[in-house]
C-alpha cells in the first residue's frame, strides 16, 4: 500500500497543526451500576470507562493484606475498527495494554487505604481511531475521580509521534499506521511524574525531548477537560437548585 503524505503545507490530513489535539469531550456517570464511569469522545475514538469497587478481593487468596489490588481490562468491540470483524476475547495487544494501564492506576490510587479489596477498571473501545490506550487511561482517570476512590492525582495520557522530521501530538489511526514513531505516555500532572511510557519506531534524542515537551503541553489542555467533566454534574446541580441553598 502506498504511504500517504501525512503532512501537507505544515498541516496534517485532518487539518491539525503538529501540536494540535483532536477535540475531546468527556461525560461522567453514564453507567448507573458502576461506582464511577465516563464516556469519552476523543476525535473519532469513542470510549467507555467504568470502575467497580473497592470490593472484597475475589478469589480471596488474591487479596493483599496491605493494599487493594487493581484489575484492569482494556477491550475493543469487534466492530470498533474499519477492518474485518474483530475476534472475541483479549488478544496479546489488549493484554499488554491492560497490564500497563493497571500499573498507572496502581501508582495513582491510594491502594493502601483498602487492604484485601479489589478495584476493577473496565475500558471498552466502541469506536477506534488511533490513541485508544491514551483515551482509555484518560477516561478511566475521570471515572475513578467520580467514583470517589482517593487518588494522588488525576493522570492523563496522550501519544506523540514523528512524521519525517516533524514531531506531532495525538496520532489518529492513519497517522499511527504510517508514522515513523509512536510514543504513548501517561503523566501525573501535579509533579509531572511519568506513569506510562511506550515507544516504537525511531526517535533521536532531540526528537524524544521534543515529543515529551509536546505531551506535557497537551496535558495542560487534557487536564482542564478532565476537571471540567468531573465538576459538571455538581455545577448543573448548583445551577438548578443553587438559589435554594443560599
Amino acid at each position: 500500500m502506498e504511504k500517504p503524505q501525512l503532512i501537507v503545507n505544515g498541516l496534517r490530513l485532518d487539518g491539525r497543526k503538529p501540536d494540535e489535539l483532536r477535540p475531546i469531550k468527556i461525560e461522567t456517570d453514564i453507567i448507573k451500576n458502576a461506582s464511577g464511569s465516563a464516556y469519552m469522545e476523543w476525535g473519532n475514538n469513542k470510549v467507555i470507562a467504568a470502575v467497580y469497587g473497592p470490593k472484597e478481593a475475589l478469589p480471596k487468596h488474591t487479596g493483599d493484606p496491605e493494599k487493594a489490588i487493581i484489575k484492569c481490562v482494556y477491550s475493543m468491540t469487534p466492530f470498533s475498527s474499519l477492518e474485518e470483524h474483530g475476534r472475541s476475547g483479549p488478544n496479546r495487544r489488549a493484554i499488554e495494554i491492560s497490564k500497563v494501564t493497571k500499573e498507572v492506576f496502581e501508582n495513582i490510587i491510594l491502594v493502601e487505604n483498602f487492604p484485601r479489596s479489589e478495584i476493577d477498571i473496565f475500558i471498552e473501545i466502541l469506536q477506534a481511531d488511533g490513541g485508544t490506550r491514551a483515551a482509555g487511561i484518560t477516561a478511566a482517570a475521570v471515572a475513578l475521580a467520580t467514583s470517589g476512590i482517593p487518588m494522588r492525582d488525576i493522570p492523563y495520557a496522550v501519544s506523540a509521534g514523528r512524521v519525517g522530521d516533524t514531531v506531532i501530538i495525538d496520532l489518529n489511526k492513519l497517522e499511527d499506521n504510517y508514522s515513523d514513531a509512536d510514543m504513548p505516555v501517561a503523566i501525573a500532572p501535579r509533579n509531572n511524574e511519568i506513569l506510562l511510557m511506550q515507544m516504537d519506531g525511531g526517535l533521536t534524542r532531540e526528537q524524544f525531548k521534543k515529543a515529551l515537551e509536546m505531551i506535557k503541553n497537551a496535558g495542560k489542555v487534557i487536564t482542564k477537560i478532565q476537571r471540567e467533566a468531573i465538576k459538571k454534574p455538581y455545577e448543573d446541580l448548583i445551577n438548578k437548585y443553587g438559589a435554594k441553598y443560599e
Binding site: V100, I194, L203, T204
Partner: peptide, 17 residues
C-alpha cells in the same frame, strides 16, 4: 546507536523526566 527504537516502562512506580 542512532535512534531510540523502543521504550517500555513497567510497574507501579514512576519516573521524573
Amino acid at each position: 546507536g542512532n535512534n531510540i527504537r523502543a521504550i517500555q516502562k513497567g510497574l507501579y512506580g514512576s519516573f521524573k523526566e
